[in-house]
């Protein structure tokens, strides 16, 4: 199966390991990976700050980049949800609306793609320890992917996923919110980190690089012995 990878700009620039893990896991599951070089950012930082016109340029670029892809797969619930939002952004735009709908229909978050399209629940991964899983807001509430990550993690040998109190609360990332409302964001991430630390988990696992950079950054600042890992990295552990 041919998969066109949408790496996301955060993974491309800051979390390249997540991109590598995504490629290796999908290849192991029999996919052939294509990475179009012309991909940029999905436009979310500008869009979510109210700069809709500025956001449309990278969005158009992304639509062009992925127009011939069969399956667009991304290791991010938030960026996948942004692609799903494109039809609303270009509503009524004769030139772009249909193309936007077409891109949105073919977009999958990584765990969703593995479970729902490849129909695989056990990717043959192994990781010893206990983990708390962060259910990121956009993945669950906008993309409605709630079970797939847990289904995959359940089959990771040696790994026990422990319940995370207050799991429904946002980690405080929110893109530009994290700097624009830094003082509020700090309180939110601090509470999240304290909940994670209370579980005594060895790992914090999440499916969105943004949340992981946020929570992981706070864990590192506090010097806590918790390792943050992206779902793709966990699935690629052997």
């Amino acid at each position: 199966m041919k998969v066109t990878l949408f790496s996301t700009c955060l993974v491309d620039m800051f979390q390249s390991n997540v991109g590598k893990a995504t490629v290796e896991v999908l290849e192991r599951l029999g996919c052939v990976i294509d990475f179009p070089e012309s991909q940029v950012c999905c436009g979310q930082p500008a869009y979510n700050s109210g700069y809709v016109n500025e956001a449309k340029e990278p969005m158009k670029r992304m639509i062009e980049t992925f127009k011939d892809a069969e399956y667009i797969v991304t290791p991010s619930g938030s960026c996948a949800a942004m692609f799903k939002e494109y039809p609303h952004v270009f509503k009524g735009d004769e030139k772009w609306e249909q193309k936007a709908i077409s891109i949105a229909e073919r977009t999958y978050e990584l765990s969703q793609f593995i479970v729902d399209v490849l129909k695989i629940e056990d990717v043959g991964a192994r990781l010893e320890g206990t983990a708390a899983y962060h259910t990121s807001c956009h993945m669950t509430r906008l993309l409605h992917v709630t079970d797939a990550p847990f289904t995959l993690l359940k089959h990771v040998k040696g790994l026990e996923v422990v319940p995370l109190p207050g799991a429904h609360n946002c980690c405080g990332f929110g893109g530009t919110f994290s700097v624009k409302m830094g003082q509020i964001s700090e309180q939110m991430v601090d509470e999240k980190v304290m909940s994670i630390s209370g579980t005594k988990a060895d790992y914090l696992i999440g499916g969105d690089a943004g949340c992981l950079i946020n929570i992981g950054g706070r864990i590192e600042r506090k010097g806590m012995p918790i390792k943050s890992m992206h779902l793709a990295e966990v699935l690629n552990s052997r």
């Binding site: 790496s7 993974v11 491309d12 620039m13 800051f14 979390q15 390249s16 997540v18 991109g19 590598k20 490629v23 990475f35 070089e37 994290s178 700097v179 624009k180 830094g182 964001s185 700090e186 991430v189 601090d190 950079i213 946020n214 992981g216 950054g217 706070r218 590192e220 600042r221």
Partner: peptide, 21 residues
């Protein structure tokens, strides 16, 4: 505003796209 409460990752020297290429 970010680094007042959190570490921020340094950009990767080898970007994902470089690795893929």
């Amino acid at each position: 505003a970010w680094t007042e409460s959190r570490e921020f990752p340094a950009p990767n020297k080898e970007r994902f796209r470089d690795w893929f290429k």
